[in-house]
Amino acid sequence: MTALEHEPRSAGRGEPLVVLTDVQKHFGSLHALKDIDLTVTSGEVVVVIGPSGSGKSTLCRAINRLETIDSGTISLDGQPLPQEGKALAKLRAEVGMVFQSFNLFAHKTILENVTLGPIKVRGLSKSAAETKARELLDRVGVGHQADKYPAQLSGGQQQRVAIARALAMEPKVMLFDEPTSALDPEMIKEVLDVMVDLAHRGMTMIVVTHEMGFARTAADRVVFMADGAIVEENTPEQFFTNPTSDRAKDFLGKILKH
């Protein structure tokens, strides 16, 4: 963690990987995403913060089309997101997603949760997928739980399995949609540690979170959203010490006081 603070990675070091251009999204009369332009480069860690209902989860979910958008374009590695079908499934395999509520497959063991994608989507043999899955489970510290069912694990353990499940697909980018918001305080750290480790290994990450500590230590860039629009983007240091917009000042004032 300290190595990272001494040697912050430059945001522009990689090629553009995820590019959103003029994205609009409405939920009925609510303008959920307003004029979103965002480019995330390879190897970059972008943390999206903002008040509830600001559209940050919608943004995250739009990137692998779990939410459709009304207009604008989203492209991944130069390819625009396909509408539906096989092409969309193929693209989703390149994007890892970690949900607030873990969403581990309840009827499958931990090991089966991690091997399902590699076997069914990537076409790996069962043994190859299991070897890789056990490695990943060891890496996130739940290797000894491989034969249990999700309901038998704590929230923090489940979320680490969910991260391993996403990593097993060897994605180009990982999306985290409030990964620690459903966790007990004492379990938050174990999940954040895994995420910081992932950032260190150079994974491209888009993280929606309320964990300001994580934003400070692991992010290359902080994107602040309010009312469906991106209000401010900056390095974590600049953003937390010297926010430019009133909306961000107000938000930080409220959350950093205690």
Partner: peptide, 24 residues
């Protein structure tokens, strides 16, 4: 969320149904 997670790992609709939704 079960179906969303299945779609997120790249399973097509048939796979989402066969592997995740229908068994449950």
């Amino acid at each position: 969320g079960q179906a969303e997670a299945a779609r997120a790992i790249g399973l097509p609709f048939s796979g989402v149904m066969r592997e995740v939704v229908l068994p449950q």
